[in-house]
Design a protein around this nucleic acid. Sequence first.
DNA 1: CTAATGCATTAGTCAATGCTAATATATTTG
DNA 2: CAAATATATTAGCATTGACTAATGCATTAG
Lengths: 109, 109
Amino acid sequence: MTEAVTMSNLMRALADPTRRTVFERVFDSEEISVADLTRGSGVTQGAISQHLKSLKQAGLVAERAEGRHVFYHAAPEGLEPLVTWMDHYGVFWRDRFTNLRSLLKEIDP
Amino acid sequence: MTEAVTMSNLMRALADPTRRTVFERVFDSEEISVADLTRGSGVTQGAISQHLKSLKQAGLVAERAEGRHVFYHAAPEGLEPLVTWMDHYGVFWRDRFTNLRSLLKEIDP
DNA sequence: CTAATGCATTAGTCAATGCTAATATATTTG
DNA sequence: CAAATATATTAGCATTGACTAATGCATTAG
């Protein structure tokens, strides 16, 4: 059941477009403050804080407080439950075998 | 924007536990009728039909009508947009390199 | 033909969700 | 210290979402 709960948290967190955009912006930055995330988001700072709370609970972001700032960074490991879930449906390797070869060479030439 | 809409459809479809269970049951069966899906689902037949509609719009299932029955089957290709989205976050290959080698041997021994 | 079956759709209800505006809590600055 | 800044939290509102019960529409069975 824990797995299902986790998946629901994750999927619900990612289902909202605004929140997904927040996650993408956090990921694309090394670190980013709430104010910076608010800028150009189209919603208020309060809303951004709420989205960050959801993302944090889903394990997708983490924070680092510094003075009156709070810097967020991505935690893409939080996507693992989703990967595991999808793995069951064999969608990972389908149509990806060509990439596999070049990737392997890259790792172990 | 189409991409975002697709992603939202997909994520929203998979966010609900009941609907996710429906998808899993459809996937695990070659084909399955609405009545069979309703059985043991804990919700009414109407609810199941609604979930199937969502899943269909998300591209995760397809149907085949036969007489008064409608048989559903999974369309796991519908998960591709999710795979593509996650690919951007590098979660696929992380911790999967060991599997990679054996998989490659399997493909091209 | 009539009754029964399988499924989809609709209206209505209740809970959950995303948002704003306002406020509370720190922290920094002058 | 007082004003300003950065973030979190709260209450309230409008919207969405999942569900049931009821109904409609085909199709098959008796």
